[in-house]
């Protein structure tokens, strides 16, 4: 969706056109769900939060400022609601059920290498991500997955861009340490190097 088209759809949604808002839901629901699900790690909870986010967005559409991207605004609402959910359930990152990582993810990640080593590395990366603090995890997801700048991530998380940079640095450090032991196997590293290059070329 081009910026102009997005602007037009938002304007129509503000006027009360439900079909325009439906387009917005369709455009952002997957990205939003991926982020929220990574935060709360519960399918139904993530769906409920996403639904609440869109309803809240619809009701507060007048308060949206075009100074920021619409996705940044949506993720801001989603992050706050996810935090509330985490606080309520005390489902912090340390309580992740690692049994959830497994064969289901093979089908979902068809673009990645499917060897046993690749699956092992992906599992390791996500496990390491789950070990991060909530701001670190959010920063990493928004930076890598959504391609947000530190400034925009700061807007979502409600903190200065410098603090986001610090969170990113610490997150990378922890991920690097978590992966250090695994990457002594040169065969694995070589496989992932080729996999990463292939994906980068695709993007």
């Amino acid at each position: 969706m081009s910026p102009d088209e997005l602007k037009r759809i938002i304007a129509r949604a503000r006027e009360g056109h439900a079909d325009a808002f439906r387009d917005l839901v369709e455009a952002y629901k997957e990205r939003l769900f991926a982020f929220v699900w990574r935060m709360v790690r519960d399918h139904h909870e993530a769906e409920d939060i996403c639904q609440a986010v869109f309803v809240k967005a619809y009701e507060s559409l007048d308060s949206y400022s075009e100074q920021y991207a619409f996705s940044t605004w949506l993720f801001t609402i989603a992050y706050r609601m996810s935090l509330n959910s985490l606080r309520k359930k005390k489902a912090l990152s340390g309580e992740v059920d690692f049994a959830r990582f497994g064969c289901d993810e093979q089908d979902a990640s068809a673009t990645l290498a499917t060897s046993e080593e690749a699956r092992r590395l992906r599992k390791l990366i996500w496990a390491a991500v789950e070990e991060l603090s909530t701001p670190q995890k959010s920063s990493v997801l928004l930076f890598y997955r959504e391609g947000k700048s530190c400034h925009d991530i700061g807007k979502v998380l409600g903190m200065p861009a410098v603090t986001v940079k610090s969170h990113l640095h610490r997150a990378r450090e922890r991920l690097r340490k978590a992966l250090a032991a695994e990457l002594v196997d040169e065969r694995l590293a070589g496989e992932y190097l080729s996999g990463s290059q292939m994906l980068r070329a695709q993007r």
Partner: peptide, 11 residues
């Protein structure tokens, strides 16, 4: 690899 996985892995 972290970047690749985080950016592309679907939930």
């Amino acid at each position: 690899s972290v970047e690749t996985v985080l950016a592309n892995d679907r939930p």
